[in-house]
Nucleic acid binder design. Sequence first.
DNA 1: AAAAGTATGTGGTTATAACCACGAAAATGA
DNA 2: TCATTTTCGTGGTTATAACCACATACTTTT
Lengths: 228, 228
Amino acid sequence: MDLNFVSKTFLFRGCSEDDVRKIAKYLGFKTVRYKKGTTIYKEGTTVTNIGLVLSGSVQIEHNDFWGNKSVLDIVYPGGIFAEAYACIPNEPLMINVVANANCEILFISIPNLFIPCTVCKIQNRLIQNLMIISAQKNLQLSKRSLHTSPKTIRGRLLSYFSQLISEQGSSKVVSPFNRQQLADYLNLDRSALSKELGKMKNDGLIEYNKNAFHLQTVRKGTLSGQKY
Amino acid sequence: MDLNFVSKTFLFRGCSEDDVRKIAKYLGFKTVRYKKGTTIYKEGTTVTNIGLVLSGSVQIEHNDFWGNKSVLDIVYPGGIFAEAYACIPNEPLMINVVANANCEILFISIPNLFIPCTVCKIQNRLIQNLMIISAQKNLQLSKRSLHTSPKTIRGRLLSYFSQLISEQGSSKVVSPFNRQQLADYLNLDRSALSKELGKMKNDGLIEYNKNAFHLQTVRKGTLSGQKY
DNA sequence: AAAAGTATGTGGTTATAACCACGAAAATGA
DNA sequence: TCATTTTCGTGGTTATAACCACATACTTTT
């Protein structure tokens, strides 16, 4: 196991290589290699370990009752998966985790993590990092949910832009997404999104150039009442 | 502070009244009363305490750049709020927390919680409970996001039903929502939802009576390829 | 049991977003 | 720099969901 790499991941932030070594011994880390295409975690089962991707990548997939598959996420080296499931005792997986390429996964037992201990300090650091990861995912999901709740394209865009404005502290904002990614994020069709942006420009609501947008500050009265 | 009540909340699950007393002394709990309408946490500020509602209720609100308000959640006694923000250092609130009625809030410092300690065991229990709460919220949000991503009403319904089937282990399922709530959950108009349910019954896909639905198991080929 | 209130289904209309196709523009890379 | 690939905007068409209005069924209250 590449201690140096592990100590630099978000999950082990604040841990030295030596810390990692110690806690690895205490918790009993396990590293497993998977061939591309192998199912690592299977829907319906329960797990107690989170997976930390050391190399390669894994894909989080969902299959509905009728067998329709959708890819929810791809996790790259340094990222973790199944943390929500590993933290809730006996919560069956809603998703499959599949090796997207030949990969190497470090498994970390969550129940062990919560047993107080001789290496309490490092352990606590780990728990706190895990907590932060979970909380961040929460905020991400909440934001997206907020932005996809308006029924119109314009409404979703304005909600998203509002977010960017507040994050970037200016009505000139830069979006990290290209058109297709933004459409996916807001659950829209790309071409429809492009069209609506054009209309908004026409209506004098925004100016833009590629992913840089300049929002016009409209008087509140103009929009209030509209459910956009 | 009503120790008995506190010890029975989800956050303190597994803690005796005495445990609560001990950890309260150690962490320094603070209880505050608010009059209805008071802002408890204000958008843009940063917080380090989670709030546990002891009595009354609080409302989680969001205001966009143009001042349009939306209510994201209401938290009742025993529930907590702002946990995601309190766990991430310096994360500015995206939301306001407002007293929905005269209420009493118990504030618990998260940074203190992560400092190892004399009452390590109880503390760890608390952290673990918090972790579970966060993880559960994650799954909730992920599920909803999954079910609102299809573009058609039918698609969203099938995705939702698929979930119920897997949770309830049968193709006869009961939904906890009435029509309006289901429409809100799936981001749909109620009347449009009702109509689509009617069509699906007509198409022989489902039978239903109020919130009890019976899904027909259609051959995979019938639906596959459709993006529903 | 009547009355008031709430939830649900349905018809009709309209706005709107998805979808398809294609050309232009921009980015990539050889 | 030229060729190839990817991204983006736009026109046109169609399916579809929102919206509004109302009647019926079901609940709750008194």
